[in-house]
């Protein structure tokens, strides 16, 4: 996030910032933590760690700036440093492949021509949630930040410490992977009309 000079807050001001700027985002934070860890207990720990870190480093936060993005960045870093290491399959995205994909002339191709709106509307169970969960964590993260939380490219670039161009290409790739996954579900539901 932006390099902001350290703020000088009184104890009361710290409490105000914490209660009025940080705590309102706890539901989004918990949902983000849950999607990353896919475990309720890990999500609880991650959110708790994030808020305690946010309090400890509260003087790096400038009042009135984007608290939600600041908190998401802390949670994402905590996840990478503390949780991802111990996960069964540390995920790795082939960024070269992503960039090559995005920059190729093939970018306009329709990847899932058989996925239809009608079949999506019949997905009333956990299909969409399972499809999202099945994505590599880096792809899942950009979908969550953009589609569920409404962050802009610039905010996502700061949360994830990546250039805006990479945000854009990763999001593009993530949407296509999600569609591929949904297309597989649609086929198992009998919508194999390709």
């Amino acid at each position: 996030m932006e390099e902001t000079p350290h703020q000088q807050y009184s104890e009361k001001e710290k409490q105000d910032v914490f209660n009025h700027e940080f705590m309102p985002h706890i539901r989004s934070m918990y949902n983000f933590g849950y999607r990353l860890t896919l475990d309720q207990d890990d999500a609880k720990d991650l959110v708790q760690d994030t808020y305690l870190k946010a309090y400890r480093f509260i003087e790096s936060f400038q009042r009135g700036t984007n608290a939600k993005a600041w908190l998401f960045r802390i949670l994402k870093n905590s996840f990478i440093n503390d949780y991802r290491k111990k996960s069964k399959e540390p995920s790795k995205v082939d960024y070269q492949e992503v960039e090559t994909y995005y920059n190729s002339e093939d970018v306009d191709r329709q990847i899932t021509p058989d996925l239809r709106v009608e079949s999506l509307k019949d997905m009333i169970g956990d299909e969409i949630s399972n499809a999202l969960n099945s994505l590599d964590v880096d792809f899942k993260t950009v979908i969550i930040l953009s589609d569920l939380e409404g962050f802009k490219y610039e905010e996502m670039a700061k949360i994830l410490d990546i250039p805006i161009g990479t945000v854009r290409s990763r999001l593009h790739r993530a949407r296509n992977l999600l569609k591929e996954k949904l297309s597989e579900y649609a086929k198992t539901m009998g919508y194999n009309k390709a």
Partner: peptide, 24 residues
């Protein structure tokens, strides 16, 4: 139309968990 349907599905199905009270 397809992409917006996916977006709406995501919003309705993937961010509905309430924070357990003990966390707060």
């Amino acid at each position: 139309d397809l992409e917006m349907t996916i977006k709406e599905l995501l919003k309705s199905k993937c961010c509905g968990n309430d924070v357990p009270a003990e966390v707060i």
